[in-house]
Design a binder for these strands. Sequence first.
DNA 1: GTCGTATTTTTGAATAGTTCAAAACAATGA
DNA 2: TCATTGTTTTGAACTATTCAAAAATACGAC
Lengths: 143, 143
Amino acid sequence: MAPASVETEIALRHAGLRVTETRRGVYNALHALPHARADEVFARVREGLPATSMQSVYNALGDFVDAGLARRIEPAGHPGLFELRVADNHHHLVCRGCGRVEDVDCVAGAAPCLHPQQTHGFSVEAAEVTFWGMCPACAAQSE
Amino acid sequence: MAPASVETEIALRHAGLRVTETRRGVYNALHALPHARADEVFARVREGLPATSMQSVYNALGDFVDAGLARRIEPAGHPGLFELRVADNHHHLVCRGCGRVEDVDCVAGAAPCLHPQQTHGFSVEAAEVTFWGMCPACAAQSE
DNA sequence: GTCGTATTTTTGAATAGTTCAAAACAATGA
DNA sequence: TCATTGTTTTGAACTATTCAAAAATACGAC
């Protein structure tokens, strides 16, 4: 269900962002579409706010990411996807056929959940895991 | 050291590819630059073959990937990188500062080396792990 | 409530990285 | 050496995203 208007407002303010119609719309779109591309968010926002520009959606999404309200993921070969689930360290399962993305819980919970065999002198902050496979629909189709 | 001309030729033929100057050049460039962008490969190839076009480099890189001779990786926020190390399942460590990429051995060796907590009905083929951190040079600079 | 300021949105253009398509050219097997 | 098929060149197109300036708006102070 869509978050109550008040909740959206609180979330935005808490992140230090001004509350605008565009941002409300983008936040609610992300709530409804948990791994959405910018253009999908745009389409969704326009249902309620037909005057909104693509640029504003990019602005809002960028602001959300900067404020820690949203996360941007970018599976190889796909445009960026945005998600509101930022509180925990989780991973993603991506379909090679259609690009469908699902969340996968992390066993460890906190980053970095895995540690590299070699560090090459780097300080390692996070381990991003992307599982690649075939979703049921694409598997059925490729028989 | 650069592979002997014969070795490059054998590798190409073995992958089912015709041997051309461009492909030799691209193969040798990848050998010298283990995680190179297309434009870096292009620059390197042009040192020896000044008439080569960017498009040919993209063609060759794409052909290599299709033939299983090379792999394309795409760390979020960076253009695609190409590597010849395809025989084993290994991972990558990427610097958030400069984008420098290093290989990290996989403990398991074979894909998928990790198994997701939830599969959502997907058949999982591989687990791609990207470690994010700061390389020594960037860490020193941000003090 | 009104006002002023800083922020946001709009508009329109620009960019990077990559792919498409057709014609000229070259590698390989016969 | 020739014919065929695959490769390279040329030039354009495309997608996802970012930049920049002007108009509009949210919010704190009064």
